[in-house]
Design a protein around this nucleic acid. Structure first.
Length: 552
DNA sequence: GGACGGTGAAACTTCAGGTTGCCTC
DNA sequence: GAAGTTTCACCGTCC
């Protein structure tokens, strides 16, 4: 490429420049990554580029057709998003963002690596760490919405994106192109000549510090107060914080929180317990002590006083488990309070499956929460008012005092999970709640972890309903209601086949065992029927005690 | 005259991402 | 703040 040509591309000021640069990149036999600021824009831009490429000009049609098919059928039922992506992939163009399923993301990255896909239009998903044969990075937006209007993206992020191109394993050099409408000089100054922002320690975020302090204590790496302080003083966080007193204040606050919640205990308490046990023995020993010995003991007491100032901490059983589960202690504390509420509801007979889901729907681990859009209001509020008594959290809760939107977001999540285990079609979920396959997948994974954590916490706290959480996990995993759990435990039976069988009166493993093979063949087809019959006889009993008889 | 379709301006809506965290058959 | 989508008024065409 001659320098002149490059400048011509960079200086053009119309939206079509994206298309122009992309086509130019393809024509010189190279590949490009285009970064935009929103998912919607990624899809639209990719389609725009693809529309200017004729399928006839493409020489690897065969490979792209296969790829396109794979992308279309990456999910059980292709969504509109799948259709859009599979269509443009035929032209060697793709979009890439968090809304795609993992499989689709993987397929696209692989195809780009092999050179079949020429252009990927991405949100910052691809900005960090990937090693792809991209010759050009084209940045369409240097500003991004951040709650308070549009802000410039950090220089660090610009550098990360630019750094995706000209990877040593593929090229000798790469090009980074920023498309600007105005403020050209300002952008050059900021990103080309500007220096990157300084790096800040991630430990400075309190959830992280909370987890790490509990972790240090529960693994007995540091138990003494001074040891904990010293540990953090020696981290990059401590170095950056500088102000030791302030660091101490924060650690004090967190220790107090962990103590108040019963996740750790102070040594004094521990010692007192030991003292109580040993008191009898000790008093016997005292009888034989000489005056001298007594004097030494007094000195010891003085030493003890010193140790008391140097407090020591130990984790409780629940604290240790929380740390092992990698739960933010604050989340754990919220879960514990929620469990208490749930227990009261159960006593009053005001619980159902909604209560169990709602209990966890506000966990910060689920961030970012799905947006509640205008059209959602009616559906969400109706659902809430209809089932109000089953909710663990209601609108008067102080948690929502200044944030009604947060309240609605949690209900929306509750409703999404409920619909999923109510066997609603995936496409129904995507369209009704405006979520993407990728988002649903990641929310399900996190929720599964939270359910397991709740199972563990409620078991330790002796709540007799703890098994319900593992049951709910299975329901969430397969997207089925309670009645299908026995059936889906057999390999090759998912939510759809289970429902087919159930509706024909075959309701569990035993029914399959006893069923006439011809009946099964009619429902599932010949091969599958044989396979499943065999699996049902080999399967002992449902291993996990799911309380299948007891309903929520 | 009314139905229909095309066009463009105005109004409205919405906005990135993910490291690992647990257990088990 | 701005891109993308939806809505709506307006106009021309056709039957």
């Amino acid at each position: 490429m001659k320098k002149k040509d490059n400048e011509k591309i960079v200086l053009k000021n119309s939206y079509d420049d994206i298309v122009n640069v992309s086509l130019d990149t393809i024509s010189i036999g190279k590949q490009a990554l285009i970064f935009v600021s929103t998912k919607r824009s990624a899809e639209k831009t990719a389609e725009e580029i693809a529309s200017k490429i004729s399928f006839e000009q493409i020489n690897n049609k065969g490979k792209l057709k296969v790829l396109s098919e794979n992308i279309l059928h990456a999910l059980n039922n292709p969504t509109k998003q799948c259709e859009r992506l599979s269509k443009i992939v035929l032209k060697g163009i793709a979009f890439h963002h968090s809304g795609l399923s993992n499989k689709q993301k993987f397929l696209i990255e692989e195809a780009f690596r092999k050179g079949d896909i020429k252009i990927i239009v991405a949100t910052p998903t691809l900005a960090v760490g990937v090693d792809l044969p991209s010759f050009r990075t084209i940045i369409k937006d240097v500003k991004r919405f951040s709650g308070f209007g549009m802000n410039f993206i950090p220089v660090l992020e610009y550098l990360q994106m630019a750094g995706r191109s000209g990877r040593p394993s593929y090229d000798n050099y790469g090009e980074s192109i920023v498309l600007v409408k105005n403020n050209r000089e300002e952008i050059i100054e900021r990103y080309i000549y500007g220096s990157p922002e300084s790096i800040t320690s991630k430990l400075a975020v309190e959830p992280a510090l909370r987890s790490h302090i509990l972790g240090l204590i529960s693994t007995n790496i540091e138990n003494s107060y001074s040891g904990i302080i010293k540990f953090f003083e020696n981290t990059f966080y401590g170095y950056q914080y500088g102000n030791k007193e302030r660091l101490k204040d924060i650690i004090d606050r967190i220790l107090k929180f962990l103590l108040d919640e019963g996740f750790i205990i102070e040594e004094n308490e521990e010692e007192n317990k030991k003292d109580a046990k040993n008191s009898e023995k000790d008093s016997d020993e005292y009888k034989n002590e000489t005056d001298d010995d007594f004097f030494i003991t007094a000195k010891d007491i003085y030493e003890d006083e010193k140790i008391k100032v140097e407090k020591k901490y130990y984790s409780t059983r629940i604290g240790e488990r929380i740390s092992q589960l990698y739960l933010d202690p604050l989340t754990a504390s919220i879960i514990i309070k929620g469990l208490k509420k749930l227990n009261e509801k159960i006593k009053k007979g005001e619980q159902n499956i909604i209560s169990f889901i709602n209990l966890l729907s506000y966990s910060l681990e689920l961030k970012p929460f799905p947006n509640v859009k205008k059209k959602d209001y009616e559906l969400i509020e109706e659902f809430y008012f209809k089932n109000q008594k089953y909710f663990i959290y209601n609108e008067e809760d102080e948690m929502f005092e200044y944030d009604y939107d947060f309240f609605l977001k949690g209900i929306k999540l509750t409703l999404i999970f409920l619909s999923w285990i109510d066997e609603k079609d995936e496409n129904y979920l995507f369209e009704t709640f405006d979520i993407t396959p990728g988002e649903l997948q990641s929310k399900k994974e996190i929720f599964d972890w939270l359910l397991y954590s709740s199972y563990e916490i409620s078991r330790i706290l002796n709540y007799n309903f703890y098994n319900k959480f593992s049951k709910l996990r299975m329901m969430l995993k397969y997207g089925v209601s309670e009645e299908l759990l026995s059936l889906v435990s057999i390999k090759d039976i998912g939510r759809k086949r289970a429902r087919l069988l159930y509706n024909k009166g075959i309701k569990n493993i035993h029914d399959i065992k006893n069923a006439d093979i011809n009946v099964l063949k009619k429902i599932l087809g010949e091969k599958l029927a044989v396979k499943i019959k065999k699996a049902s006889t080999e399967k002992k009993e449902l291993e996990i005690n799911l309380d299948l008889e007891k309903k929520f």
